[in-house]
């Protein structure tokens, strides 16, 4: 089981990073989503894997429980990553609609900053 989870994390990370290194907005967004899955599963797995041991207390008998803390952290991470995805989607969309260009890189002829004013 551990090998499956670890290899899945590795494959999702690799695919996510590959897509993040593309030069158009949409693949980058997809890459970030994939990387989010990978990171969330990674964080979740730091609590170690356990089957049939949810962290819901059983009043009637002693049962094993999995580590609840990584789960709580990942739960908020999932929701926050939705918010962040929505923001970058909106930024990408606004940029594309305004310039009709969905490159993430600045053009070489765009100046990096305005020439400094000297007193």
């Amino acid at each position: 089981m551990e090998a499956l989870v670890a290899s899945a994390v590795g494959v999702m990370t690799a695919a996510g990073i590959f897509l993040i290194l593309r030069r158009r907005t949409f693949p980058v967004i997809l890459g970030l989503s994939l990387l989010t899955y990978a990171v969330n599963v990674f964080l979740f797995a730091t609590g170690r894997l356990a089957l049939d041991a949810p962290a819901v207390l059983n009043k009637y008998k002693e049962v094993p429980y999995t580590d609840p803390l990584p789960q709580a952290l990942v739960l908020t991470a999932i929701v926050i990553s939705f918010g962040m995805t929505a923001v970058i989607v909106m930024i990408a969309l606004s940029a594309y609609l305004s310039s009709k260009d969905d490159h993430i890189d600045m053009n070489a002829n765009d100046s990096v900053d305005a020439p400094g004013e000297d007193a």
Binding site: E2, I17, R22
Partner: peptide
């Protein structure tokens, strides 16, 4: 890019694999 991402994938996969097969070094909260 493929080389970079494959290395990153191997790295993160190996790290979590190593982690999963070991117990906590310190008691957790």
């Amino acid at each position: 890019d493929a080389a970079i991402s494959v290395m990153a994938g191997i790295g993160s996969g190996a790290l979590i694999y190593a982690l999963l097969l070991r117990d906590f070094a310190f008691p957790t909260i």
